[in-house]
C-alpha cells in the first residue's frame, strides 16, 4: 500500500510518500527544496503560511522523487489537527479532493500522533509500549504510547512550551528570534552552575511542567549581570533540561515503561539527549528532519491506520483543537 501524506498544520507545508512494504519513498518540505522554478519566482515572506501555493509543487516533487504517478496512490493521509484552522483547511481540502478524484480513501491524521510515531520511520524502531517526550516550540508533552491510537498524556506544560522558552530567552540574550539553537551553542562556553535558576514544578508530585517563570528568571539575570550571557545561557539550558529529565524519570517510575522516545525540535538538543541517555534506558530519536514538522510522519500514520483497516476519515473537516489522547485505535 502506498500512502501520500500532506502536512499543513502550522508554518510548514510538506508532502511525503510511504509504502507499507518499502518504507519511506519520498518526502519534501517547502523550506528544504528549491521550488522557485515551480512558482516562477521566490515565495514572498508574507505568504509564509500560504500553503495553497506550495502543496501542489511539493506533491509533484515527491512523486517524481519516488518515480510514481497519482494512479499509484492507494490512500491519502492529511493533517486534520491540531493547528491553525485556515492552514489545516488547505491540507484537508487538498487531501479529500484528491482522494475523491482518484477514488481512494482520504484519512484524517492527528499531527501529534504523527510526532509520536515518527521514531518508527527509523531503524531500529522502538517496540510498543514506550514513553515519548515531545518537546518543540509549540509542545511539551510526556505521553505513554501503548500502541497505534493508544496514547495517554502523563504530563504537559501549563504555559510556555520548552522550545518557546529557549527561543524567547535567546531573544532576551540578543541572539535573535527564534534562537533556541543559538542559545544551546552559546551555552557550550558558559558555566551551567553560575546561576541557580528554578526547576519549575519539580518540588511537587505530578508530571505537569511550566517554563514561563524560567524565562523571567533569565531576563532578571540578564539585566543584573550584563556581559555574562554565556553563563546565563548555560544555566538556563541546565535548568530546562533538568526539569524535563526529572519529569521523564518520574514518568518511567510511574508507568514501568523501559523505552524512551525523544521527539520534536528540542529533541535535537545534545545536552538533553545525553542527560536522558544517562538514565540507563533505551533511547530512540528520529533524525532532525523528522523531529520538526514533516509529512513523512503523516504518511506513516496514515499507512499504519489504512493497513489496519481504517479506510474512512474519522473526522469531518478540520479540528484546530484535537487532543492526542482522544484518539482511538484504527476504525474498521
Amino acid at each position: 500500500m502506498i500512502v501520500l501524506g500532506l502536512e499543513s498544520s502550522c508554518d510548514e507545508t510538506a508532502s511525503a510518500l510511504y509504502c507499507s512494504e518499502r518504507g519511506l519513498l519520498a518526502h519534501a518540505i517547502h523550506s528544504q527544496i528549491a521550488l522557485h522554478d515551480a512558482y516562477g519566482g521566490v515565495v514572498p515572506e508574507l505568504a509564509s503560511r500560504d500553503h495553497v501555493r506550495k502543496w501542489l509543487p511539493l506533491l509533484r516533487a515527491s512523486l517524481s522523487e519516488a518515480s510514481l504517478t497519482l494512479s499509484d496512490l492507494d490512500a491519502i493521509a492529511y493533517t486534520a489537527g491540531p493547528g491553525l484552522a485556515g492552514a489545516l483547511m488547505v491540507g484537508a481540502v487538498a487531501g479529500r479532493s484528491l482522494g475523491f478524484a482518484l477514488g481512494v480513501p482520504a484519512i484524517a491524521i492527528n499531527h501529534l500522533e504523527g510526532h509520536l510515531l515518527a521514531p518508527l520511520l527509523e531503524s531500529p524502531a522502538p517496540a510498543y509500549p514506550f514513553l515519548c517526550l515531545l518537546v518543540s516550540g509549540g509542545h511539551s508533552l510526556i505521553v505513554a504510547v501503548r500502541g497505534l491510537g493508544e496514547y495517554e498524556i502523563l504530563g504537559e506544560s501549563v504555559d510556555d512550551a520548552v522550545g518557546e522558552a529557549f527561543d524567547k530567552t535567546a531573544k532576551l540574550l540578543g541572539l535573535g528570534y527564534p534562537g533556541g539553537a543559538a542559545l544551546a551553542a552559546l551555552a557550550e562556553s558558559g558555566d551551567p552552575t553560575a546561576f541557580a535558576f528554578p526547576r519549575p514544578m519539580t518540588d511537587r508530585p505530578g508530571l505537569q511542567m511550566s517554563f514561563s517563570g524560567l524565562k523571567t528568571a533569565a531576563l532578571t539575570a540578564t539585566r543584573a549581570h550584563p556581559g555574562r550571557e554565556a553563563d546565563i545561557a548555560a544555566s538556563f539550558q541546565a535548568a530546562a533540561v533538568d526539569t524535563l529529565v526529572i519529569k521523564v524519570k518520574r514518568a518511567l517510575a510511574q508507568t514501568g515503561l523501559e523505552r524512551i522516545v525523544i521527539a520534536g525540535g528540542v529533541g535535537a538538543n545534545t545536552h538533553l539527549r545525553e542527560s536522558l541517555k544517562a538514565l540507563g534506558f533505551s533511547c530512540f530519536y528520529p533524525r532532525h528532519e523528522f523531529c520538526t514538522d514533516n509529512a513523512a510522519m503523516i504518511a506513516l500514520a496514515g499507512c499504519l491506520r489504512a493497513d489496519a483497516g481504517e479506510l474512512v476519515s474519522v473526522v469531518e473537516g478540520v479540528k484546530p483543537r484535537w487532543p492526542v489522547d482522544s484518539l482511538l485505535p484504527p476504525a474498521r
Binding site: C10, G83, G137, G138, E164, K168
Partner: peptide
Amino acid sequence: TTFARGFLSALGQLSHVRSPTYTLI
C-alpha cells in the same frame, strides 16, 4: 501573558493558560 493569566482566572480558567506564541491563537 501574566496579565492574560489573571484575566482568564477571573472567568474561571484557573490553570493551563498556554502561550499562544506558536499556535497564534
